[in-house]
Structures are given as structure tokens and as C-alpha cells.
Write a protein that binds this DNA or RNA. Structure first.
Lengths: 204, 204
DNA sequence: AGTTCTCTATGACAAATGTCAGTTCCTCAG
DNA sequence: CTGAGGAACTGACATTTGTCATAGAGAACT
């Protein structure tokens, strides 16, 4: 067991990444060995630096942080991934853990606790925000089919049903049926409401 | 003129605030004298600590950062405010400068430049992201009336026209007319599209 | 082989929505 | 005082949207 934790930082906001780097570099037992600003740069950086822990944001250009973690878990480099995100959406937590993340914290966690969480993840423990874990269990599994998620993602841009149908190469009637199903499952009033709720739950 | 810049940090995300604090504390000529996590705590902290510069996020609970800057400018404490935000929306920049901000930067600014910007603001200069300034000029003034903005804010939650009418104590027909006007002004297809576009421009 | 689920699609119906024309009231600049 | 413009409202109209019944094709599971 090494006494120095080697860390990779992945966050698209330069100022936030730099801040976290400064914060963690204050710890004597943590060394930031690499920083990336895009999800699709994570895997290459992991291969090059083989850090002990990767701190990964979800919202990033390229691929999102959860996909990046999935890729990292697939190649078996042994890096343990800690998701750090702005939005504590229940579905995010579940998807992150399914993808092989070792931990999940939101960005309004007290700054003093971050280093402790990194150490726990490095030591092989799982770290999860307790309140968020409760939410995740309460909100249940994602009830939407893949097709319904596609419809809601397209609907979130604000276009008409005709536009969505053209975008997905389907008939307008089919789009309406899928959206109607999604509205029913989410308990929403209309497709925009449904898209918002599904997004808030991290289902898209 | 003091050789030590005394700084206030206002950001609702504890991890980001802590990171920025660590980042700026590395600079020998900058001292973080106070941190707050809500917009409505800014004014009291300014009064208590009278810092030279305040670094203020826009998205915060209580009141937003732009309103906090307006309050700060109103009482004439001499603190110069630098807005630091996630979203580089044209309307935000204009509103921030109107409120009396001394500078405006987005969170994907390179971390190494932050201290330099704080120094420039402390020295009495104005600091504005050039690309954003161009966008702001190109996008023009907010074409929406106060009433239309209210409608769009309410519509963004996804409710029906009836729900919006009840919320604002208006008849459904009036709400439809205002929304129709807003749709026309934004060139949107429907009210949800209009709400999204107005929000992206920082008009709400 | 049968069951179940998803995806696709059509047609019909009711409700919600967007548009338009026209009116009243109020405020503010000239 | 007058005119311009915004806010509020009504009624009428066409379009869009949400719902439902129905149905065939394909995949997965028993």
C-alpha cells in the first residue's frame, strides 16, 4: 500500500478543476498527477498515468463522466473512480454505481470532507452521499424505455412533434404514442413537463 | 493602497468555494477574508469584513448574485465585485454590468488567469470576457416586457396555461396572449421553446 | 407454442394551445 | 391634453397535442 495517493481530475470547468487541484494538493498524502477537461480524454489519461483514484464530473463535453467511468472499469486498470457532480439526481447515482464507480458525492459537500472521501475510496471503500442514496431508493428504477427516453431528450429542445418525428425518422403518430406513454409514467401534464421531471431524476 | 487584496467569496457549492479559496490563497498578495454560500448573506458579510474585492457566483439560493452586487453597489462600501459564473449568457453580462459589477468571467476561464483578474479588478479596472462581450452586443437588448418574462418563468416549470393563470392571478386568455407575444418575439415554436431560448439568453 | 413486451403505425376524438381582432384601463412623454 | 404603449380581457378560429382502441412485426422468456 502506497503512502501517496496519485489522483486524476476530470472536470470541464477550468476554474473548478484548478480549484479542486489546489484544494487537494494541500493534502500531504495526495498528488494530482493529471487533469482533463473532456470525458473522452479520461481513458487515455488513465492509461498514461495509472492514478490510484479518478475524480470525475458527470457533465462534460465528449462523453459524460458516467460513460467515462464505464470505459475505465472495462479496461481493468485498477483506478477507483469517484464521481463528483453538481446535480444529485437519483438516477445518476444508480447509473454511476452500475457503471463501476467507487463513490458519488455532490459539489455542495463540505470542502474539508473531500480529501477524506478520496482517502476512503483509495482504501477500497465505497463512498456515497447518504441522503442521495435514500432518494435513489425511494425514486425507484427508471420506468422509461430507451425509445421513450429518446423522445423526451428530443422534446427537451422545445420542438414540435412533427420536428421530433422528422429528427428520429418516425411517423408523428408513433412519436405521440411514445410521448403519451412517457407522460403517463412520469405523472406529468405534458411532454415538456415529462422531459423536465425525467431529467431531474437523471433518467435521460 | 494596501499591498494585500482582501477577498470575499460567494458561491453556493461548498466544494467549488473551497477550491477557489485554496487556489487564491496560494497567491501571496491575496487573502480570503470571508466566504458565504447564499446571495442574501453577501451584504452582511461585506459590511462586516469590508473586503477589497468580492467574487460572486450568479446561481445562488436566496437572491441571485447579480441582485447581491446591486445591493452592494447601493450601499457604497467600495468593494469591487467580480461575477464568476457557469453560464456565459449574454443577458447576464449586461445585467451584471448594469448592477455595478466591475468584472464578469465564466468558470471555464483558465485557472491561472483568475488571480490576475482579481488584481486588475482590485486596481480599479474592468474585466470582461471578450467573446462574451461580443455575444452580448450581437444578441441585442432584452425584447421582453416584465409581464412576458413572468409568463416564461412560470411556463418553464412545465405547467399548463390554466396553472400559470392561477399562479399569476390572471385569466387564461391573458396568459395566452402574453405567451403568444413572447413566442413571436423570440421566434420560437411554442412557449416551452420560447422559455428555453429566453433562459439561454439570460433574459429571465 | 404461447405469453409478454416493445416498437411501429393508423384513425378518431377531446382538450389544450397559439393566433387574431378588438376593447378598456392606465401611465408616461411630449 | 393628447398620443403611444403596455396590461388586461373576451371571443372566435385553426392547429397541435394527448388519449384511446386497434393491430402487425419482432424479441425474449416459459
Amino acid at each position: 500500500m502506497s503512502d501517496l495517493i496519485r489522483l486524476l481530475l476530470a472536470d470541464d470547468q477550468d476554474l473548478v478543476r484548478g480549484g479542486l487541484s489546489a484544494l487537494l494538493s494541500l493534502e500531504p498524502d495526495i498528488e494530482v498527477v493529471a487533469e482533463v477537461g473532456r470525458g473522452d480524454e479520461v481513458l487515455a489519461a488513465l492509461r498514461q498515468h495509472t492514478p490510484d483514484v479518478a475524480l470525475v464530473d458527470i457533465e462534460m463535453p465528449g462523453i459524460d463522466g458516467i460513460e467515462a467511468v464505464r470505459q475505465a472499469a472495462g479496461v481493468g486498470l485498477g483506478t477507483r473512480c469517484l464521481i463528483v457532480t453538481t446535480f444529485g439526481r437519483p438516477g445518476y447515482l444508480r447509473r454511476a454505481m452500475d457503471a463501476g464507480a467507487a463513490g458519488f458525492v455532490v459539489k455542495d459537500t463540505p470542502a474539508e470532507q473531500l480529501a477524506a472521501m478520496v482517502r476512503r475510496v483509495a482504501a477500497g471503500q465505497r463512498v456515497v452521499d447518504p441522503a442521495l442514496a435514500a432518494d435513489s431508493l425511494a425514486s425507484g428504477l427508471n420506468p422509461l424505455t430507451e425509445r421513450e427516453r429518446q423522445m423526451l431528450r428530443a422534446a427537451a429542445d422545445g420542438g414540435s412533434i412533427k420536428a421530433i418525428a422528422a429528427q428520429l425518422h418516425l411517423s408523428a403518430g408513433t412519436v405521440r404514442n411514445h410521448l403519451s406513454a412517457a407522460i403517463g409514467k412520469t405523472g406529468a401534464e405534458n411532454r415538456h413537463d415529462a422531459a423536465r421531471q425525467a431529467s431531474d431524476n437523471g433518467w435521460l
